[in-house]
């Protein structure tokens, strides 16, 4: 079975779904993400679906579950890159993805996560104000 890779970049987990997922692959991703959130302590998850040419009710439900589970684990999820035809189809299907935050692309998704969690430097840039001063020898 294929597996969708989960990348840690700064204080974000980034998932870019590049394959037409079997249902089991989507469920595996849900588990992998929950484990990685706990293992890394990140506060934000970005799921890039720009390569997906459809999102059916199963994948939609999986995205909603991922968002809920990460929220319980103190991380916010943003789904980015949805194609226009996918958005039209999802709404007509009856799936409005309540509880899922969306952004048009990865950059805007990172900005969204950064705004809601301004104390945390999501990309891990050095920032003097956040550093604990090392005692000088």
């Amino acid at each position: 079975m294929e597996r969708v890779p989960v990348l840690k970049i700064g204080e974000i987990l980034l998932v870019s779904i590049q394959i037409d997922m079997e249902d089991q692959v989507a469920l595996q991703l849900q588990e992998d993400l929950a484990e990685r959130i706990v293992a890394t302590g990140v506060r934000g998850v970005i799921i890039d679906i720009s390569a997906l040419d459809i999102v059916d009710s199963f994948v939609g439900r999986t995205l909603a579950t991922i968002a809920s589970v990460s929220r319980v684990l103190d991380a916010e999820t943003v789904v980015v890159g949805m194609r226009p035809a996918v958005a039209i189809t999802l709404v007509e299907l009856g799936l409005s993805l309540p509880g899922i935050r969306t952004a048009l692309n990865v950059d805007l998704g990172i900005a969204m996560l950064a705004r809601q969690d301004e104390d945390i430097d999501l990309l891990g840039d050095e920032d003097d104000t956040d550093q604990v001063a090392e005692p000088t020898p």
């Binding site: 079997e22 459809i54 039209i88 007509e92």
Partner: peptide, 30 residues
């Protein structure tokens, strides 16, 4: 599960061949 993926892919291929619009392809494959 893998067969469901194959059905999606076949429908996509045929939808392109009969020249459905992109939105209609997406609706039919979904």
């Amino acid at each position: 599960d893998q067969d469901v993926v194959r059905v999606r892919q076949l429908v996509r291929t045929v939808a392109v061949a009969v020249k459905l619009s992109l939105v209609d392809q997406t609706k039919l494959v979904t």
